[in-house]
Write a protein that binds this DNA or RNA. Sequence first.
DNA 1: GAGCACTGC
Length: 807
Amino acid sequence: MGTERKRKVSLFDVVDEPSAKIAKSNGLGLTGMNANSSINKWNGRPYSQRYYDILEKRKTLPVWQQKEEFLQVLRANQTLILVGETGSGKTTQIPQFVLDAVDIETPDKRRKMMIACTQPRRVAAMSVSRRVAEEMDVTIGEEVGYSIRFEDCSSARTVLKYLTDGMLLREAMTDPLLERYKVIILDEAHERTLATDVLFGLLKEVLKNRPDLKLVVMSATLEAEKFQGYFNGAPLMKVPGRLHPVEIFYTQEPERDYLEAAIRTVVQIHMCEPPGDILVFLTGEEEIEDACRKITKEVGNMGDQVGPVKVVPLYSTLPPAMQQKIFEPAPPPVKEGGPPGRKIVVSTNIAETSLTIDGIVYVIDPGFSKQKVYNPRVRVESLLVSPISKASAHQRSGRAGRTQPGKCFRLYTEKSFNNDLQPQTYPEILRSNLANTVLTLKKLGIDDLVHFDFMDPPAPETLMRALEVLNYLGALDDEGNLTKLGEIMSEFPLDPQMSKMLVVSSEFNCSNEILSVAAMLSGTSICFLACFVFLLSQVLGRCPGAISCLISSLSERVFALRLVHNTRLSSATVLSGFHAPVGMHHRISKQVLMQIVSVSQYSLMKQMVSPCLEAQKAADEAKARFGHIDGDHLTLLNVYHAYKQNNEDQSWCYENFINHRALKAADNVRQQLVRIMSRFNLKLCSTDFNSRDYYVNIRKAMLAGYFMQVAHLERTGHYLTVKDNQVVHLHPSNCLDHKPEWVIYNEYVLTSRNFIRTVTDIRGEWLVDIAPHYYDLENFPQCEAKRVLEKLYRKKEKDREESRNRR
DNA sequence: GAGCACTGC
């Protein structure tokens, strides 16, 4: 291969001198400022205008010549940094160039060394590798392959492998020097995922021990200088992007209400600007749905003066079929020669990196996104609506110029862009609980975390917290060395608490059940269909003719309004399925109906009130069938068991408000976990279902992992987390029929109040039995829980004495 | 008696 490859894409524009500091000249693309007079008033409010020429106009060299220069630099250096905007084609082209440049032969003629190209996302790894295989005219999985969780599409013949950054990190755990690779390409490095950051530090070490290994770091322009500094002044080359110029507008005054401002701007664009689709960035699902409704309504009020609009919400938890709607074309004019239609996509950050929509000409950027923050003091991760970074703003505006010149409206002042926004979003490693990361690092053989070469070192307190947690779990000894237990735990793709629960579950004679619980809890989206779907089907059955118009006008919104729940798995989600009818009924009748359906449709909708009661009944039955009064974890287990007992039947799922696809995903996770269990000879076992200990053992095993996430019911009637003494409330979605004195919880969420979500009743006696080292009273803050524990210890001591006397 | 940015192993 090689010669017959067809390359249509021109790649390099200019090859900078090694170590040239291009970041400075390129910056944010702030050069080329121009006055622009096409809009000087925006909804009565003047906008300041600046023109950013994102494309740097430099002479273009023929492809072969640039390729040679690239190969030259690669041969002469161990590390190389390559910067380029998205859309430069570097992801598909560079690995192919590299393939031509390096010798991948090994003494063993049957096997060649590989080139690895990492991506932060699975879909990208898969689709890019497919495209490259096609370009090189080879079958995917042969010379070119990919490797992602649950799917290894590569073979002994594979020489170019695309994989997720997390996957490469996994591989490093068994192959610390990454000896099967000749070149490693870290793509999208500017995204600074946890895995990328760990790989940075790791690869820096590996490179010292493997002079034959080469590293190519590919990134967007903004962090180039920082990368260069980190990688000891490695040469830097540039691939120009192929973006069209984007005009940027700022407001002259700060906006008080960015949601209102965003909607106003959408309407203004629709009224005054030439055809072209609009992309609006908002922070979350609720806000997006709200905005969609309001935009539709406002434009609807304007009548025939303006063209029709198709308003499409976009966020990750939206069912895939709904997400596809963003790729549909804008609606045609209502009548021939009338004003053209427009597509308006209202999206979370997902449209900033993960999903690209062609045809976007206008971007509206209010300047906010939800970001994860971690507070090591109370060990809580939460989501906070925060101002975005300059880099993020830059990325957002770039979304307007993919197919033609575009415009970006920033709903903040230029001054605040310059002075208030930080240059980069804080990398994830500074915003996360690092327990899992530290465990991985230990497994990778990095003992001295304090001196590990992080590009951005995390707060010492965060590292200390992580070490402390791992020590309590028994994964690290008091010297901070990985224990045998920790070694096994690190092999599971789960949080340490969950791995611990799984590893010890055999000792509690319930590993089969704990496997199911862990699979159901771990990041899969499981959901119950809300009862409205049931309700619709009821109505459909009754008046099939009349309903079709309603369905057509409602069906989009039925999804959009979360009448179908398709959110991440937590028992909260699962259990809210049971609660859905009340809220949903209320929601659709009051907030939505009058806005989105005509009067005749409304009267039809009113007929749905009575089937709604049936739906309520069905949901109650579902709850009665699966709900376990002792806890949400056990409810999840019931759901999983019922699913298996009914042979994973799709229509059974539908009838029981269970999302089939999501349970299948959980089953997939479970199989992976089972394989890891067997690898370590961990027994797969169950307590007899008729035994009194069946659920007791499961709850004890869970406690063995989650003893640090316990809350105690105070006499005042509210819960306090153990040791941290935070006031928390049981999330109203819980399935308990009582308020237990002690609960373990899976999640601590900060929203309108401090909630603990997915909770299960446990007994105080178990705390002192299973985790005496954590419930050591000498090291315990004064509180009610402490006094209760003291009693429990005394009782335990007394019992022990009695049994000694009896002997 | 509430409401989940986005990934990944």
